[in-house]
Design a binder for these strands. Structure first.
Lengths: 309, 309
DNA sequence: ATAATAGTGTCTTTCAGACAGTATAGT
DNA sequence: ACTATACTGTCTGAAAGACACTATTAT
């Protein structure tokens, strides 16, 4: 607004100030992005003229170095100086899966001290969803082993304690990840405390086996979030191929929500989000189904999304 | 699982590896927390026996140094080495407002390059809500001026463009912040792009006057989030005093949502969240109202809260 | 015919929205 | 009586949940 440069208390102009600025005045943590890349695959039922089931899969990589050598971790890496947080997430995603144009959304940033034994690390977690037919399932040009793990995350306990000033709601999730012979498991608790006019939610790992860092927590959090958002947004379609039957779509919802839905109601609810194509399935032993595609003109009500919050 | 220590490719055990680890191998950005501290205050209507109106207020501090010297910014600061992200937010909140036990929730982490001219800065934004009667309104033991700004954030334009492969939904918000003679204004766009099976939302500042950094974006995002959450959680009560009338509560909803609500419906919807007390208002020229308090046993359905998503 | 899936019709309950009405203090 | 607020009753229509029913293919 003024043409003559402002000076601060030391009498420096902004240019002078910036030239003298020492970026190391405050300790600097390392910042990483961690990716939760989910997809849904068909699982053969084997038996005669039955439709394949669906499984929710998550990509994990095996750690080839300390710390947590040999354990499984979420793909991710350090944010570089010249790239934004989102760009780092896109880069890591491409490095791990060779896909680029898929759904990617920032979830939560984890910043506890001691999360990483090497140094102070703050990690922004990103949720990514992809159609399995677009993915090289032998993922990872990156070094080391990678694998798609079948995810089962189940609410196993819900405790509510009423206190004089409020209540405590503790939910325990058991998380199980399977890939071939490898089975990882963990138990995570989400504790919500309401006390007077204050409330707070905390996620804690009760126990974790085979998973590196605090990644069990990040996974449980992401699954919960996925479950929440699938109810009121169109994210499920990010997991579908171009054309699909309504039964396939319903199975995707069911595997994510970990519960069965009623067919008639499901179809009514999703009617506006899909468009009938002229294709039909013509496989085996039963009535063929119409193929649908996503109605890209459908607009959800939620503005707060970061490709949400 | 094994008692004999694992060694990596260089033959180092974990202890050896950690001792040799160079934390500066990757560039380290600075990390800050930025606080969006909202409260609701009474605004005198002046005129005869009328109830006071309500205003949504946000705490801003005036920058006493470069960059953006003299402009207004969100309170916040660097995360220290020994404290978690949440702890840093709690500390900054205390430093700015002398309150500690209030609602605090992580919102989103902003990591664009060039957000801060000093150095690479990544900022986790936190939403805080407090009852104005708990706050020292002359906020800030911290150096410099601070002020509670009346927030008006209004959706001024909504453009939907249908493309062959999807659609683009652009929402323009006009943000206005007033505190005494000072008036800050900005225009922010939230652009959601749906293209085939990919979607993405981006927030951009169209113009910003008097607000430092990209804080206009953080504010618009927080207001949108607050509007979203007030509909399905109990956060509104974090802004209320111990006892309140239903009309007061309704006015808080109205000032946040920036629209009028129908009384009968509002009361029906909130009936389960409040408990009648035996108090009554006994002020002026009209029928007295019952006083209510928050029903702390009320449980919202949303697990995904930090301190949701 | 039968197995297995595809797809529809409709009843009930719940809830949001709209509106009209009654009640009660101070002056 | 009048003003300004407090509070209630009820109609409507949309959406969610539950369930029963019909349709169509390959073998």
């Amino acid at each position: 607004m003024k043409d003559q440069p402002l000076k601060n208390r030391e009498g420096l102009t902004e240019t002078e100030f910036l030239a003298a600025y020492d970026p190391n005045r405050y300790g600097r943590p390392s910042v990483t992005v961690d990716l939760l890349i989910f997809t849904v695959t068909d699982e053969e039922t084997g038996s005669y003229r039955r439709l394949p089931g669906k499984a929710l899969k998550l990509l994990l990589v095996r750690r080839a170095d300390h710390p947590f050598l040999g354990q499984w971790a979420l793909p991710g890496g350090f944010v570089r100086t010249g790239e934004s947080l989102n760009e780092a997430a896109v880069r890591e995603l491409r490095e791990e899966t060779n896909v680029e144009r898929v759904y990617l959304e920032q979830l939560y940033t984890w910043g506890d001290v001691g999360r990483d034994p090497r140094t102070r690390v703050i990690s922004a977690s990103y949720l990514s969803l992809a159609d399995s037919s677009c993915l090289d399932v032998r993922a990872g040009s990156d070094a080391g082993e990678a694998g798609w793990f079948t995810v089962v995350c189940r609410l196993t306990q819900e405790r509510k304690t009423v206190t004089p000033e409020g209540h405590i709601l503790a939910k325990t999730y058991s998380l199980s990840l399977r890939h071939g012979e490898t089975e990882l498991s963990a138990e995570i608790e989400a504790v919500k405390t309401v006390e007077g006019r204050v409330s707070q939610t905390q996620w804690e790992i009760v126990h974790s086996e085979g998973l590196a860092f605090d990644h069990a927590k990040l996974i449980a959090y992401a699954v919960e979030r996925l479950r929440g958002k699938i109810k009121y947004t169109d994210i499920a379609f990010r997991l579908m191929p171009e054309r699909f039957t309504l039964t396939e779509l319903q199975k995707v919802y069911e595997v994510i929500l970990d519960k069965d839905l009623l067919k008639a109601n499901f179809r009514r609810k999703l009617a506006g989000m899909v468009i009938e194509t002229d294709g039909m399935t013509k496989d085996g032993g039963h009535r063929p189904a119409k193929l649908y595609r996503f109605n890209a003109a459908w607009a959800d009500s939620d503005a707060n999304e970061e490709g949400r919050s």
